[in-house]
Design a protein around this nucleic acid. Sequence first.
DNA 1: GGACGGGTTGTTAGCGTTCACAGTCGGGGC
DNA 2: GCCCCGACTGTGAACGCTAACAACCCGTCC
Lengths: 337, 337
Amino acid sequence: MGSTLGRRLPVMADVAKEAGVSHQTVSRVLNDHPNVRSETRTRVLQAIDKLGYRRNLVARALVTKHSRTLGVVSFDTTLYGPASTVYGIEQAARAAGYFVSIVSLKSIDRAGVRDALDYLTDQGVDGIVVVAPQRSAARALADLPLGVPTVAVEGGEAGEVSVVSVDQVEGGRLATEHLLSLGHETVWHVSGPSDWLEAEGRVAGWRAALEQAGREAPRPLAGDWSPRSGYEAGRSLASMRNVTAVFVANDQMALGVLRAFTEQGVRVPERVSVVGFDDIPESEFFSPPLTTIRQDFGAVGRHSIEVLVRQLEGGPQERERLVVPPVFVARVSTARA
Amino acid sequence: MGSTLGRRLPVMADVAKEAGVSHQTVSRVLNDHPNVRSETRTRVLQAIDKLGYRRNLVARALVTKHSRTLGVVSFDTTLYGPASTVYGIEQAARAAGYFVSIVSLKSIDRAGVRDALDYLTDQGVDGIVVVAPQRSAARALADLPLGVPTVAVEGGEAGEVSVVSVDQVEGGRLATEHLLSLGHETVWHVSGPSDWLEAEGRVAGWRAALEQAGREAPRPLAGDWSPRSGYEAGRSLASMRNVTAVFVANDQMALGVLRAFTEQGVRVPERVSVVGFDDIPESEFFSPPLTTIRQDFGAVGRHSIEVLVRQLEGGPQERERLVVPPVFVARVSTARA
DNA sequence: GGACGGGTTGTTAGCGTTCACAGTCGGGGC
DNA sequence: GCCCCGACTGTGAACGCTAACAACCCGTCC
């Protein structure tokens, strides 16, 4: 119990005096240095306990030049995807013994990314994970001078930095092939915003699958990930008699599409089949439950920390590129043509 | 441009030499000390620019004993509510010139909260925001020795700490009164997990409104916030002929309820009216679009930072208690009995 | 018996900043 | 002409820790 009546928190010297050793010995005990007599060690430990001493990590960081803090830069952590990724990152980082400092950007442009990076670097983070799903962010990352080891999540071809991502192209392909295998003549697509690498990858997968099957790719309808934009795309789609299958770039937009179809009396999956992307917790309970492509955001977060920590602790290595496969989740929003 | 060929980053002394002044003068310039001749100031500024000097915040924190970092403890930031709150906190904190360090707990028990608090305190945060929606967390907070100023979000009656929260009771009342005003005999309730203060508040509001109208309160069905638990509650509800109005404690569960009703052929709002809580971005596009109670998570986050910063910068003040009102959002999942 | 060496401990010197205290300089009041 | 005061600047000492080195003890070896 704090016998420190003076309000000052105990420091190493106090512990040293209490234990009758030098502060350096206290330091050695704290850092598990091998050469400390075990009797001395217990005396120090007792003193620490008695005084309620806690090591000052700021002072430690000043001399070691390592803060054991990792920075995370993300965009709109209100969305399920980024939120889940950041959650995975945080869990993994803490498990690896690192603190996590976060910057959530409202808009992701070059200046924003640079500021965030500077900001974190100033704070003394040992490494940074940038969740950079937009092309602009990835580009910014590629040609920004990086003060500390950095890894990108969904970062595309980003120059020097390591990248961990979900195979979006494969996801788009899975969705489209599923629809095609059901006998649909072609598959329409409601895409995400064009600046997003994920959106782009899904479009590419969709296009590739169509091409491979020798089908014409209709013009994709562009959304912005929001249910509303899906709803609007859905209204357009509902008015076209030849639409029988739609691959929507995320589940939220798919919800909007579903809603528009319901309003227009277009039955899913009887008249139109719909496939989403992400597998948010809600999609199983949409009407009808949504067939979708699951992304393992947690795994992405964990991998990004693994890569970063490896870089931090194993010295400078060459950049890595890690891809997490998406998985197809069958539910009931699709049916034979 | 880094004229520092030796890899060492420039420090204050380097700038001082470059500008021909003492390191202390550089410090004064950096801290906007008034007594610096403007000619000197520009010379220092030029040197800073030339060397690409950036102040070492760790060293600064060591002597000032302020890190300008705030800690955030939250529970499952994958959920929309916590995620939005944390987002609001982060934005507000950064605007106020603070870094944000995050700990996301998997389970919130006394030990977990204590560890998180210690962890952040060790790191040297100046203050902490605990998003503590569970009773257990609030209790832990109440009798834990707090090293630094702390504010709770949704923290109930938590002892000494200031609390910012949404008026859950009022929200429950709004939902219930709306349903009653539509002529429903009584209102059923699908609640959140009993340990959650928010769940409890909503139950209280629901009960109060029923009581005030002289109606019998049916036994609430307990969920766990997940769509699945809503779905299960919905199946029970669907089998009861006398149910005409349901207040569901969050939108995700409401989705599950809606789904169960659809499956069972129970039409909403024709046969049963449903009201949710939260107003997540999706709820406008449910089938039917969900009437709900909106919580302004962003405002809660902002307020919590305001309170905390006030405490940090204005010295120790008495604890505050700030309540954000919920707002009723009319859509089409409710109708006259 | 003295040199050697490993285990153990203490001493000193930073890390890069701010704080407290001294200086220096020049102008105004007597 | 002298003193005082305010504006400006410099010097030294923290802050609490770790790194590097020095010192000591004691057993072993030649």
